[in-house]
């Protein structure tokens, strides 16, 4: 099926998702549940990836600087810039697209093929909104915290390697982290994060919601959800970077 069809159906679904909920209290309760599972569920993997990536960026920067004219605090500076601008918002979003995305698509897809969505519709409930809105709202709220957490851990990972291997001193590294800091970089990263949060919840929800068939198709939807949300993240990342930084 063609891309125009999917775009059209996606936007129609989003229109339904954001139409007035029938019972506000239930939505609020579900949103809290989603926030907790999203936040807690992502802590571990985000921590591991951030620490290691920060460490690797620090080592690579240090090993590529062999000119005596480049000050050694550059290592800290470069780590900070890479982590804040690209690594935490974008790479973590891609990881979450895999983790949260496949989860959402298979959960909603299973509900579709086992007629649970029909059951909701029969009860007169706007199923698209009921199933998707709490997840989207939860991600919009929680992902910025996850990303800030990832930024700290990334820079911390760099610090651990810097100090333990002696490539730069702790003081130089920290001086680098603080050098020429522009608060707008954080704003930029958080804008990206919020947009990506929408992408990695709504696209998988779409693929899950329109699953047809059985268990096999749920698996396919889940794969497709991850592929398309990852592509969307990369495209949106490019567009936002051009829009915000140039």
């Amino acid at each position: 099926m063609n891309i125009v069809f999917h775009f059209g159906r996606y936007f129609i679904m989003m229109y339904r998702v954001f139409s007035k909920p029938e019972k506000f209290g239930i939505y609020r309760e579900n949103t809290f549940k989603e926030m907790i599972s999203l936040g807690i569920g992502s802590m571990g993997i985000v921590a591991i990836i951030s620490l290691f990536m920060g460490a690797v960026i620090t080592i690579q920067t240090a090993s590529n600087i062999d000119s005596p004219w480049i000050p050694s605090y550059t290592v800290g500076f470069t780590t900070r810039q890479s982590v804040i601008l690209e690594f935490s918002p974008t790479i973590i979003a891609l990881i979450l697209a895999g983790k949260i995305g496949s989860n959402i698509a298979s959960e909603i897809g299973t509900m579709r093929v086992t007629e649970q969505i029909d059951a909701l519709e029969i009860m007169g409930i706007n199923s698209a909104s009921y199933l998707t809105l709490p997840k989207i709202i939860a991600a919009l709220f929680i992902n910025p915290f996850i990303i800030i957490y990832s930024m700290f851990l990334g820079m911390f990972g760099g610090w651990i390697v810097a100090v333990s291997t002696g490539i730069v001193t702790s003081n130089q590294y920290i001086y680098g982290l603080q050098y020429d800091f522009k608060p707008f970089d954080i704003t930029y990263a958080l804008i990206k994060t919020v947009v990506f949060a929408f992408v990695i919840t709504s696209i998988p929800a779409y693929h899950g919601y329109y699953t047809r068939g059985g268990a096999l198709e749920v698996g396919r939807s889940s794969t497709r959800a991850v592929v398309y949300s990852s592509i969307a993240i990369l495209v949106v990342n490019y567009l936002l970077t051009q829009l915000l930084l140039i």
């Binding site: 007629e115 029909d118 059951a119 029969i122 009860m123």
Partner: peptide, 14 residues
């Protein structure tokens, strides 16, 4: 729809 109940082929319990 609030006046109708439905039992689905595979039960469709949540």
């Amino acid at each position: 729809r609030r006046e109708l109940g439905m039992l689905f082929q595979a039960s469709a319990l949540f």
